[in-house]
Amino acid sequence: MFIPLTSLDLSLAAVLVIMLALLSWRMQLNVTQQLIIAAIRTTVQLLLIGLVLKTIFTHVDILWVALICLVMLSVAGWEILSRQHRKLKGWWGFGVSTASLFVSSFFISILALITIIQADPWYHPQYAIPLLGMLLGNTMTGIALGMDRLVQTAWQQGSIIEQRLMLGQTSVQAINDIRKESMRAGMIPIINSMAAAGIVSLPGMMTGQILAGAPPVEAVKYQILIMFLITAGTGFGVISVLWFISRRLFDDRHRLRFDQLLKTVKNK
């Protein structure tokens, strides 16, 4: 059984957000503006994508699906960049984050669509777009965290890295401990959510399917599939980011070169 929502239903929920905004404004908690803007953004963006999906579902065409996917991919790429504390060099940074998302989400979505889900045609937007969306949204977090940790730690521990180089270590040896730590930082959220799934939290996708009337066990199977895809995607994505960045951090003579990586740094 599926119960559609009316505009009135949504307005009731919106009143809660507005009450929260008013309260935080009264208490001078400084989140009011961000809260309102984000709430408006989510409404407009979701309504728009709803309309887009509705149109695409009725005209199944691989070109349209590809176009939407590319837009999603590049927006996610920018999103990763904007979550970095240290600004990476423009196009290069965008290239790395998008390339890693390509490995983590695009490639894995296509693999899952063709070999596991096997819709007809395999790129059917009803499956392709939600799947890619979920993968992008979740792997993006892990990649952004891993990347930020690597760049931040390398920056803070620059003199330790150089000390290790002075002792004759290779660039890989000198950055290895920081790489391990960054991999952990990127993977912890998905590892935690796998461990907590079903006991502490009911994952959103599964809950959505159940709300839409799907049998619980079927919903659970889909959720397990998605969890595994997200985990694999996040892992491969973080690894590729670590690989790209730690290569860029050094030159071919194993010198530490922040000027190749970061925007505002000039080589001393």
């Binding site: 521990q157 003199s159 330790i160 150089e162 000390q163 290790r164 180089l165 002075m166 002792l167 004759g168 270590q169 290779t170 401990d177 003579r253 194993h254 010198r255």
Partner: peptide
């Protein structure tokens, strides 16, 4: 470069320990 630095060793004013 790592081989060179093992032969030509630099001791900085402040050493680092990690």
């Amino acid at each position: 470069a790592p081989e060179w630095r093992q032969k030509v060793a630099l001791l900085p004013a402040e050493s680092q320990w990690w």
